[in-house]
């Protein structure tokens, strides 16, 4: 177990290291940040001072090391636009994003998994077809289209709900539905195919043949085995709790991390972009580790930890 954990943690650290390196390489390849930020007619002394302040006058290798060191100390740089620490700017937005993504995640799991299980157990029935068609539609309708259609119907035509902004819980309804619907569809599709795969296994036939009731077969034999691929997808969704909201927050002008990212990209506010990139990588990596631990819980064969 300890060995398993340490291998996982090492890999996680490697991934984070790769993200940091990726950010650094892209940052330095993109040209001189001093010239990007300062206007073209800035006096040369000002540009030089800026370079010195940001450490841009040192050798590249030193820059990389000090960059890495600063990140290890939790210093993610300052927003080049408004001078405040990037991490503070991002942290302020996290609650707003979670206020959308957590309910959306509950909706995905609460609708997607039961729908998938149901569809698999009633294969080729009318409801199975209906669930699958909805699932395919949920996958192919991009979230900005779905969001705008919901606004058109519920905000513009019917006037029941507000179309954007963040004043109260009613403002959160449409974004949550927009985000949850696509994920629920994906999850339903995955759960269904995982269940179908498991239901075709010989041990299901054996259990039925020895007289176990169908309900018990499903509960004790099929569901736990189908849980593994489903947990993987749910893990990915948990990992993207912060990242998954980019488009939807933009559609509904919701002041979360995703909206901040889009604005920062448009303004080329590199420190903020880096900070969000690292935050997303960290959540993703943490979610992956939790998923790996859950595998061990779900499947005793994976507990020994030899399968790294």
């Amino acid at each position: 177990m300890l060995r398993f954990l340490s291998i996982r943690l090492l890999r996680a650290a490697l991934t984070i290291g790769l993200v940091v390196t990726f950010a650094f390489i892209v940052l330095r390849m993109s040209g001189d940040p001093a010239l990007l930020i300062m206007s073209a007619d800035a006096p040369p002394e000002a540009v030089a001072a800026f370079r010195k302040a940001w450490g841009l006058d040192e050798p590249l290798w030193n820059q990389y090391l000090s960059y890495f060191g600063a990140i290890l100390h939790g210093d993610l740089g300052q927003s080049m636009r408004d001078g405040r620490p990037a991490i503070q700017l991002v942290a302020e937005r996290i609650p707003a994003t979670l206020a959308l993504t957590v309910p959306a995640l509950i909706m995905k799991i609460g609708i997607g998994i039961p729908a998938g299980i149901f569809a698999a157990l009633h294969r080729n029935s009318f409801l199975d077809r209906a669930v699958m068609i909805t699932a395919v539609a949920g996958f192919t309708v991009p979230s900005f289209v779905l969001g705008l259609l919901l606004v058109l119907v519920f905000a513009v035509q019917l006037g029941w709900l507000p179309s954007g902004g963040q004043e109260g819980w009613r403002h959160a309804i449409l974004p949550i539905i927009t985000m949850g619907a696509g994920g629920a569809a994906v999850l339903a599709r995955f759960t269904r195919s995982a269940m179908l795969e498991v239901l075709g296994q010989p041990y299901i036939r054996t259990a039925s043949a020895k007289g176990v009731s169908w309900r018990a077969v499903v509960r004790h034999h099929a569901l736990p085995n189908a849980a593994i691929p489903t947990v993987t997808i749910v893990g990915f969704m948990v990992g993207s709790l912060l990242a998954g909201a980019v488009v939807v927050e933009s559609v509904f002008s919701w002041p979360g991390v995703g909206r901040l990212l889009v604005v920062a990209v448009a303004n080329r506010d590199l420190a903020v972009v880096q900070c969000i990139l690292l935050l997303v990588a960290a959540t993703m990596v943490t979610a992956n580790i939790v998923v790996d631990l859950l595998y061990g819980f779900l499947d005793p064969r994976l507990r020994s930890g030899v399968k790294a």
């Binding site: 892209v26 390849m29 990992g239 889009v262 990209v265 080329r268 590199l270 972009v273 997303v280 993703m284």
Partner: peptide, 23 residues
């Protein structure tokens, strides 16, 4: 390792950060 890295990051975020740097 690169494939694992790519698969474990949401692609939209990577794409956005590259666009932030290069326009």
């Amino acid at each position: 390792a690169l494939a694992d890295f790519q698969a474990s990051m949401p692609f939209l975020i990577l794409a956005l950060s590259v666009l932030a740097f290069f326009g």
